[in-house]
Design a protein around this nucleic acid. Structure first.
Lengths: 135, 135
DNA sequence: AATAAATGTTAGTCTTACCTAACAATTCTG
DNA sequence: CAGAATTGTTAGGTAAGACTAACATTTATT
């Protein structure tokens, strides 16, 4: 049981976010699905999934696939909400959607809670309504 | 003579930015000054400064200190302008200056030229006038 | 059920970017 | 100008996070 660091490294956040997106497509998530989605070797995914399980963020589900623990799900949703808000914000100031996605994907791991909240508030004041990140 | 990659890694950008800040204080810049400013060991700075020289971004000045080549200066100023604009933007939406600095310091290495330009344009429309980044 | 394909696992390697420790060269100071 | 302190350099080490290749296990197909 490895401890969860105060701030999860970007790479681990990306794994969690990817798994959440795959889950939301409705299929059982396997290592190989993560590998394909991220463009990594299966062996790399294996090592990282093991680490995330060791941290208590992932578990194997009843069907033998990969699933979140409650703590893992919370973190994944948090990362995804950041992504969503930053991408939305960037589009709202005139960045094209493709670039907004890639830039949001980097920013989402970096900025403080405070900055996130300010950007979110900015969107709520100035942008068309946010869709639910759960979709 | 190592090639300059299309996108300089964050760590190298931080070295360039730090050197620019030190230069702007008016003193000759030595390895040990960089090491102190960044909180790194002299040996780490040595390796990286060598690499940046090998890339043709830094050179030794006449007094034996470290100076930019024209290409290096351009890159350093570019990084610093990003930093400046992002920090300014964050403050303008209600982030406190300390947090704005640390967040800008991460974002500055990550986002596309387009996003940078949009944020800059946003500032020009909505914020008090920018000071000159050269100061 | 046997074989083929897909998936998971292990072992070993690479790069980046930091570190400490020891040594060399330079610079400062009495 | 000699010793002390500072600065620069070299050697070797570590951790993260990716890789390939080989092997093991599971799943699918005939």
């Amino acid at each position: 049981m490895t401890a969860i660091p105060e701030k999860l490294p970007e790479s681990l956040e990306m794994y969690l976010e990817t798994i959440l997106l795959l889950q939301n497509k409705g299929e059982k998530v396997r290592q190989v699905d993560i590998a394909r989605a991220m463009g990594f070797a299966r062996s790399s995914v294996h090592a990282t999934v093991n680490k995330l399980m060791d941290m208590g963020l992932l578990k194997t589900d009843t069907a033998g696939g990969i699933d979140f623990t409650p703590a893992g799900k919370k973190l994944a949703q948090n990362v995804y909400e950041r992504h969503y808000v930053f991408a939305h914000f960037l589009v709202s100031i005139g960045v094209d959607p493709i670039t907004a996605q890639t830039d949001a994907c980097k920013i989402e791991h970096d900025v403080s809670q405070l900055t996130f909240e300010r950007i979110k508030a900015f969107c709520e004041r100035n942008c068309p309504p946010l869709l639910d990140p759960e979709d």
